[in-house]
Design a protein around this nucleic acid. Sequence first.
DNA 1: TATAATAGTTTCATTACACAACTATTTGGT
DNA 2: ACCAAATAGTTGTGTAATGAAACTATTATA
Lengths: 147, 147
Amino acid sequence: MSNASISALIDKFWESVPPAWHQTRAQIRSVAAEKFNLTVEQFQVLRRIRRGINSVSALADANRTGRPAVSRAVEALVQKGLVDRTTDPRDRRHIRLSLTEEGGRILDAIFRAAEDWLATRFERLAPADRSHLLASLDLLLAAFDEP
Amino acid sequence: MSNASISALIDKFWESVPPAWHQTRAQIRSVAAEKFNLTVEQFQVLRRIRRGINSVSALADANRTGRPAVSRAVEALVQKGLVDRTTDPRDRRHIRLSLTEEGGRILDAIFRAAEDWLATRFERLAPADRSHLLASLDLLLAAFDEP
DNA sequence: TATAATAGTTTCATTACACAACTATTTGGT
DNA sequence: ACCAAATAGTTGTGTAATGAAACTATTATA
């Protein structure tokens, strides 16, 4: 029974999570790529830098992808003038990342469009259901958090 | 407040869903790709065919991606002898997809490994939390279901 | 100091797409 | 019955996403 519940959960996970992400990514792409010439990954990096995740390694961990992918995204963002790299004088292996003003502006603009789209999805849920989903996404996060 | 809740939900979505999917995909890749020479997308197609989603268009809808990607994944699976194509005699535009025996066996093998991995994630949750998450993934599905 | 560990980058290869154009087939209006 | 529109699938072309391994630079450790 506990087993049955886990296997139902796995099925539901397959059914819901990848499509939700694909759909969201397609939406971000249409905004970020077409209007601002950014890839989805670059957008994700901007987002997380603003949230305070400010190194290539930390960004890779947060996204559960590899450092090379992040490194290239950061490089592109620096080229575009949206992100600054600052070497930490205390440990010169660390390169601290920060948004430029322009980076912040562009992120805001993408966010507005993307959030609108996401907001209309979530508005379809009753307020109580939104709270349940919010709490459950924390559970998802906890379940997938690597020890 | 309803607004605040939606924006918190959006934040949490960004934080949890893409990483969970990336991590799961990496795991599938390490099993499906390395042991069975299948891509993650091919695995997803196998999965859904067994679940009864048996046309290219329906598979593309289910995955929220385009038909071309699915078409090519199906072609690869047919080449490998894991999927059969049968033209529907009533409407010859339709091509019904089905697993071969070998396709079923391979899917089982991947599934066992993948489910084990996912199961250990979900075992970290208390049983009650698992029910909450299961119910909430339905909410996610509903929110992202296109009208 | 030599060795190991850490942060980041680059090279190379592959996967995962999207978009548009194309074929084949069926349907629906006239 | 006929032709335009719709539907299912495929193919051509290009790009984004990403992993693995090798490499540089720097710092920590034995």
